[in-house]
Structure formats: structure tokens, C-alpha cells
Design a protein around this nucleic acid. Structure first.
Lengths: 118, 118
DNA sequence: AGTATTATTGGCGTGACGGCCAAGCATGTC
DNA sequence: GACATGCTTGGCCGTCACGCCAATAATACT
């Protein structure tokens, strides 16, 4: 493995990590529909506003979202629709691999194609 | 947010989490090409074999890979090509979002102001 | 049986993450 | 200026993930 590979994989992993949290996924889904301010997202997530603010901070650093100040509000939005696409792909992967079949040989056995358009 | 949503997002997040590690991504990429035993993967990753074994265990529980015993060997392979597809999508997302461009005008188009009825 | 090879599991230290509280900053309003 | 609103930051703490070591399977070979 080259040093370049290591760097590339590390970046990828960091991106995935910044997505790998239920609250963050919910936030992403909301931002797919429209930009939102922290308060709205907080209400939807149902956590402390400081927690949500930190989630947003992490996702911003990861380049997933951006913020724009509007008076006392911070309006967050997706940086690009690639995120939507990305999460859709993941969803597709999960649909094709129904829950419960994960550890069973039955579900895994002859599954060559999962019906995901490619 | 419904209870069902919570469950779905949690599952998604768990899947992403099981991918969000450089070594695991490398393993996935290797398994895309061919099934491998733990020793081969270990050599490529460059970590202790026990560490790699645990990574594989996690990914197996997540339903990403499966193993088949061959004598003293454990041959690991991808459960389905969806994984490949999934990671490709992620890669595409990253390509489209070059580092440093985090604040491009890309999302400025369907912007609505905060607090406006929607 | 005895030994070697391959892999898994348990345990532990370390470090990162997620959550809330308290405090601080920035902007808008009176 | 004084206060309210919206958000961010620092700090603390509990929990969890990662990594290696030691020990334990499980199978193959002689």
C-alpha cells in the first residue's frame, strides 16, 4: 500500500465517519429538502442544541454542509447534492441486504447481484 | 421523527460506522478483486493479525463480508457487490467535492430564508 | 501424540466521541 | 445601554473503539 493510498483511504474514512451517526443522517435528510437553521434541526433531532451545533460543526469541517449567517440565525445547507447521491447509494445497498440476513448464511449465500442498478 | 425513522437511521449509521476506517476500506477494496484469507489482508494492512481479525469480525456482523473456512484458513469475501457500488458512490462524492472547495456556491440555488413558511 | 500453522477471543490501556451544562459571542430590539 | 434571541465554545464525564499481547481454538502435517 502506497502512502498515497493510505491518505486516500484515511480521507474516505473520515468522510464516512462524519456521516455515521443517526442524528447527522437525519440532518442530512432534512437539508436535502431545504436549508435549515440550527433551531429547526435541533427540534427534529430532539437533543440539546449544543450537541446539534457540534454535529453541524463536524459535518462542516468534513465539507458536507456549509453555513450562512442571517442575523442571529445560522442557516445550514448541503454543500452539494453529491451527499444526497452518496446516501442514496448507501440506502440502496442496505435495501438489497435486508436486516436479519446479515449474519445468516442463508441471506449471504448466493447473493451475487442485489438488483442495484449499476 | 417516527420510531421507524429512528430505527432506519440507526441502522444506516451502523453500516457507515463499520466502513469508516482506513483499514476496513482497504480490506473492502482487496475483496473487490478476490476473496482473501486473513493473513493476506493482514500483510496488506500492516497491522497485527488480531486487529485485522477483529475488523473482519465487525464487518461480518454488519453484513458486509462473509467467511468460509478452508482448512486452517478463513477465506473472506464481499457479501454482495453492493458494497463495491456503495463505496464507488462515496468516492464519486469525494471527487466532486475537492478539498478546499467546501464553501463553493454549489448549494446556493434553492435557498430559502430561515423562519419562512415552507 | 506432538508440533506447526492459521485464526479467534479476552483483556487492558489509551484515546476519541457524544452528551449536557455553563459561559461567551453576535446580532437584533426596545 | 440594556435585554432578548440564536448559536458556539470550553469543560467535564461516561462510553466506546482501536491496537497489541497473551491465551485459546481448530485444523493440518509427521
Amino acid at each position: 500500500m502506497t502512502e498515497l493510498d493510505r491518505r486516500r483511504l484515511t480521507r474516505r474514512a473520515a468522510l464516512l465517519k462524519s456521516l455515521a451517526h443517526p442524528s447527522r443522517l437525519l440532518i442530512i435528510e432534512m437539508l436535502e429538502k431545504a436549508p435549515r437553521c440550527v433551531g429547526e434541526l435541533t427540534e427534529a433531532v430532539g437533543a440539546d442544541i449544543t450537541t446539534v451545533s457540534k454535529h453541524l460543526s463536524v459535518m462542516k469541517r468534513a465539507g458536507l454542509v456549509r453555513d450562512e449567517k442571517r442575523g442571529t440565525f445560522s442557516e445550514y445547507s448541503l454543500v452539494c447534492d453529491c451527499v444526497t447521491h452518496m446516501v442514496d447509494c448507501i440506502e440502496a445497498g442496505m435495501e438489497a441486504r435486508p436486516p436479519g440476513s446479515a449474519a445468516t448464511a442463508a441471506g449471504a449465500r448466493r447473493r451475487k447481484s442485489c438488483g442495484v442498478a449499476r
